[in-house]
Simulated scan of single mutants.
Amino acid sequence: MSRPYVLLSAATSVDGYLDDASSERLLLSNSEDFDRVDQVRAGVDAILIGANTMRRDNPRLLVNSEERRAKRVAAGKPEFPLKVTVTASGDLDADLKFWHHGGKKLVFTVDSAVEKLRAALAGLADVVSVGSELDWGLVLDELGRRGVGRLMVEGGGTIHTQFMAQNLADEVHLAIAPLLVGQPEAARFLGAGNYPGGSTARMKVLEVRAIGDIVFVRYSPKERG
C-alpha cells in the first residue's frame, strides 16, 4: 500500500510561534479560519497530533460541522476521520478528551511502552508499536495499509519539524495571525533541523489568501527550487 498524502497544518504568529508561554492556550486563528480547518479535517482520512500537544491542549480533534460529517457518511466514509497520536514514553492519560469523542483512535508507540499503554487505555484505542524507536516512515506505511489516503498533521512543533526535515510533508497549510509572541520558551512551528536543500531551497507557493485578519498560505515543500 502507498503512504498517505501528508498535509501539515498550523496557525502561527508572525514570528513563528504556535502558542505563548502562558498557561492559557493562545488563540491564533479567527472563527473563519477555524471553519476552514474544520473543512480540511472533513476531507482527510486521519488526523495526527503528538502526545505533548494532547497533554498541553487536551483537544477533542473533531469535524464540528454536522453537514460535513453527513457528507462523509453519504460518501461511504466514517463520520469522523481516524484520530492518531504518537508517543515514545507511553505517558498518556485515559481521561484526555481525545479518547472520548469522535470515531476510531490509533496510537503509535515503541516496544517498551506497548503494554503500559494498552493497560492504561483499556481498549480506548488501537495501540501499535513500530519497533524499538519511533520511525515516521513505518508510521506512514502502517497508515497506508489501513487505507489512509490523506493524513492531516496538526502538531506540535517537534512533529512538524521531523516531517519537514525528513521530507515527508506533501503540503503545508500555514495560517499566520497578526500577533507577535517573542517568548523564546514558547512553542514554535518549526525548530532546528537539517532541512532538504538547505537554507536556499525555496518551496513552491500553491495559494495565498486573506481570511479576515489571518493570512493563509499553502506550500508544496517537496517542490523546492
Rank of each mutant, 00 (worst) to 15 (best):
V44F: 07
V37R: 00
R68M: 07
A201L: 10
S2W: 06
G103Y: 08
A70W: 00
G43W: 01
I49P: 02
R25A: 13
R3Y: 00
S220V: 00
R209L: 04
L28V: 06
D91N: 13
S129A: 10
E24P: 00
A51W: 02
D126R: 14
L190R: 09
V148G: 05
A51P: 03
G123S: 09
A119W: 00
I47V: 15
Y17R: 01
G155V: 02
V110P: 10
V40D: 03
R36P: 12
W136M: 12
F108W: 03
L143I: 02
S9E: 13
D170F: 05
G43R: 10
T158D: 13
G149V: 10
G155Q: 03
I49H: 09
D33Y: 11
A46P: 04
V63Y: 04
P81I: 13
G156A: 14
P178H: 01
M203C: 14
D45V: 05
A125F: 06
D135S: 11
T53G: 00
P221S: 14
Y219C: 07
E24K: 09
G50F: 01
Q39F: 02
A88H: 10
K71Q: 15
E66R: 13
L26A: 03
E32C: 03
T161W: 04
V84F: 07
L27V: 14
P178V: 08
L7H: 01
K104C: 03
L27H: 12
T87E: 04
G198D: 04
D141A: 08
G90M: 03
S112W: 01
A88C: 06
L48T: 05
R188G: 00
K222R: 10
S29C: 08
A119H: 08
L140M: 05
S29A: 14
R118I: 07
E115D: 15
V86Q: 04
M152C: 09
D33C: 11
A10E: 02
K116T: 09
G225V: 14
G131V: 13
L61W: 07
H173S: 09
L180G: 03
V107E: 00
V130G: 05
R36W: 04
G90Y: 06
R145S: 13
L82Q: 12
S112G: 14
A74N: 07
P81V: 11
